[in-house]
Amino acid sequence: DLSALRVEEVQNVINAMQKILECPICLELIKEPVSTKCDHIFCKFCMLKLLNQKKGPSQCPLCKNDITKRSLQESTRFSQLVEELLKIICAFQLDTGLEYANSYNFAKKENNSPEHLKDEVSIIQSMGYRNRAKRLLQSEPENPSLQETSLSVQLSNLGTVRTLRTKQRIQPQRTSVYIELGSDSSEDTVNKATYCSVGDQELLQITPQGTRDEISLDSAKKAACEFSETDVTNTEHHQPSNNDLNTTEKRAAERHPEKYQGSSVSNLHVEPCGTNTHASSLQHENSSLLLTKDRMNVEKAEF
């Protein structure tokens, strides 16, 4: 173990290094160091905050020279020094078990990766560091076993998940096959086929009936047209017969005018059967003409 005197000496050296690497504005270890034209180094955030307070150039807090945003430059070497100082402080805390008085939040800088452990060898070769390295080497064999167990647990979990997924996939297939086998029997399929065939026959029977009705309507229309044509021909046949009657009536009127007047009046009210309204109107006109002729003949006879 380190003596108290040596611990104090190391602590004083760390404090001196820390004062050199402090920012003059925030009085902390410089984060993202930036250098000016006057070779003074500050935190990048502190300098941008200072420049944004005034429009135009501002003055350096140490030498009062003008500073602009374009004049600022990043210093990589200074950032490396800060990183190495942080590593020294971490090693000091691990070796002594004491917390550094002016320690900052170094938890963000710590890294437990194997590459980081290899890099620590180049920091300080001390008894405390050696003991700590031995402890780490002793704890390393235990870690692979834990990793193997965790991997086995994960693989077993994956296997159970896969088996569950396969079961879920197989179950719908089985149910679907069961439904297909038990849903419709052979008799049901035959009945469905016969039902479809009967429906098709009914459709075939319905369509000819409609065509037959249309044919019957067409035949009825044709018969009505033929009947009207026969009526017209009958009226045409009746007209010459009426003319013959008129000639006979004229002759009778010349011989017996008194008797014919009474008979002509009675004939006005008689309509021949089986004739249309057109034929009756023609008869009325003929009878009126005959009456006028008879009157003329009677007057001539009187004179």
Score class of each variant (00 low, 15 high):
residue 2 L to N: 08
residue 2 L to V: 13
residue 4 A to L: 08
residue 9 E to W: 01
residue 10 V to F: 01
residue 16 A to K: 10
residue 16 A to T: 04
residue 18 Q to M: 03
residue 21 L to D: 00
residue 23 C to R: 00
residue 25 I to A: 01
residue 28 E to Q: 03
residue 29 L to C: 02
residue 34 V to K: 00
residue 34 V to S: 00
residue 34 V to T: 03
residue 37 K to Q: 09
residue 39 D to Q: 10
residue 41 I to Y: 15
residue 45 F to H: 14
residue 45 F to Q: 15
residue 48 L to H: 07
residue 48 L to D: 11
residue 50 L to I: 08
residue 53 Q to C: 06
residue 55 K to M: 12
residue 56 G to L: 06
residue 57 P to K: 14
residue 63 C to D: 01
residue 63 C to M: 00
residue 67 I to R: 00
residue 71 S to L: 06
residue 76 T to I: 10
residue 77 R to V: 15
residue 80 Q to L: 12
residue 83 E to V: 05
residue 85 L to H: 05
residue 85 L to M: 12
residue 85 L to S: 04
residue 87 K to N: 14
residue 91 A to C: 01
residue 95 D to Y: 00
residue 98 L to F: 06
residue 104 Y to W: 13
residue 111 N to T: 07
residue 112 N to S: 12
residue 125 Q to F: 03
residue 126 S to G: 11
residue 127 M to K: 13
residue 128 G to E: 13
residue 132 R to C: 03
residue 132 R to H: 06
residue 132 R to I: 12
residue 134 K to Y: 03
residue 135 R to Y: 07
residue 136 L to H: 15
residue 136 L to W: 05
residue 137 L to V: 11
residue 139 S to R: 11
residue 139 S to P: 12
residue 139 S to I: 08
residue 140 E to H: 06
residue 140 E to T: 07
residue 146 L to C: 11
residue 148 E to T: 09
residue 149 T to V: 08
residue 152 S to E: 09
residue 153 V to D: 02
residue 153 V to C: 13
residue 155 L to G: 04
residue 158 L to H: 13
residue 162 R to E: 13
residue 165 R to F: 10
residue 176 S to P: 14
residue 183 S to F: 04
residue 190 V to D: 15
residue 194 T to N: 13
residue 195 Y to C: 10
residue 200 D to P: 10
residue 202 E to C: 02
residue 209 Q to H: 08
residue 215 I to S: 06
residue 217 L to C: 07
residue 217 L to P: 09
residue 219 S to M: 14
residue 221 K to L: 02
residue 223 A to C: 10
residue 224 A to R: 05
residue 224 A to S: 02
residue 227 F to D: 14
residue 238 H to Y: 08
residue 241 S to G: 06
residue 241 S to L: 14
residue 242 N to V: 09
residue 246 N to T: 02
residue 247 T to N: 05
residue 250 K to C: 05
residue 255 R to F: 10
residue 259 K to W: 14
residue 263 S to R: 02
residue 266 S to Q: 03
residue 267 N to W: 15
residue 268 L to R: 12
residue 269 H to K: 06
residue 270 V to N: 15
residue 270 V to G: 02
residue 273 C to L: 13
residue 275 T to Y: 01
residue 276 N to D: 06
residue 277 T to K: 05
residue 281 S to Y: 07
residue 298 V to Q: 14
